[in-house]
Amino acid sequence: MSLVLKQPSVLPGFGLTLGFALFYFSLIVLIPLSGLFIKTTTLTWEQFWHTVTEPRAIASYQLTFGASFLGALINGVFGSVVAWVLVRYHFPGRSIVDALVDLPFALPTAVAGIALTAIYSSNGWIGRYLEPLGLKVAFTPLGVLVALTFIGLPFVVRTVQPVLQDLDLEVEEAAVTLGASRWQTFRAVIVPELWPALLTGMAMAFARSVGEYGSVIFIAGNMPLKSEITPLLIMTKLEQYDYAGATALGVVMLVVSFILALMINLIQWWGTARHSAR
């Protein structure tokens, strides 16, 4: 125990709590995840490569990553606007709106899925206006985009909001006394502060969207090569007992998730490093 603990502790329970936590975590997370990687080794490299590069898989990557990226961009722009409005302006119902921003976090994905489908289908509240304009949302890739935008909505807002709240108003006032216009102040003083938080939020929205399943499969067409997301492809392979195929794709997704998580950590570290350098 003294190898692990830096100082012998007087508070009790270290061995018990750390031991249990590590045991539980290994059992639930580490062992099953490594099981995935181990299973991959039963595939030959050709099998693996063939599975992850077949046209259907490639099409699913394009849709999944493409829609996630676009969704993250949309959320980046509008999420920032929402964060700005919530922090800087006061209007009736502001606190309710603020609380509701977290809805995509708390709402089960299946509920989001059917609700969005109902709205954007041809006779839905919004869909009925968009169809005549030629914008078919339900059962198309556009529907996937809508669903992933919904899913990613809270991430940018919640990472940008605290930064906006902590902004020193005096710095903006200083810029104005030096002759800057509002736009110049915004660009030179406010935007640089927001960059790390914005990028972090967008990366988190992206990471979440890439793996999203429940809210997408109702509104997507789920047509192979056209409107099929990668998680669905994995699910389909499982239903067909193609465990090898599912595993191969699963590993791809897992590796992408870990890389994204690493990137997010780096962006956050970059953000704090900038601050302490000042």
């Binding site: 975590f25 997370v29 099953p32 995840l33 995935l36 299973k39 793996g211 599912a246 998730s257």
Partner: peptide, 21 residues
Amino acid sequence: TLIDIPLAVSPVISGLIYVLL
């Protein structure tokens, strides 16, 4: 950092690993 792993993993994968196990 490890504790955050389940948040990063796609739900389908989360189920898949138990099927494989």
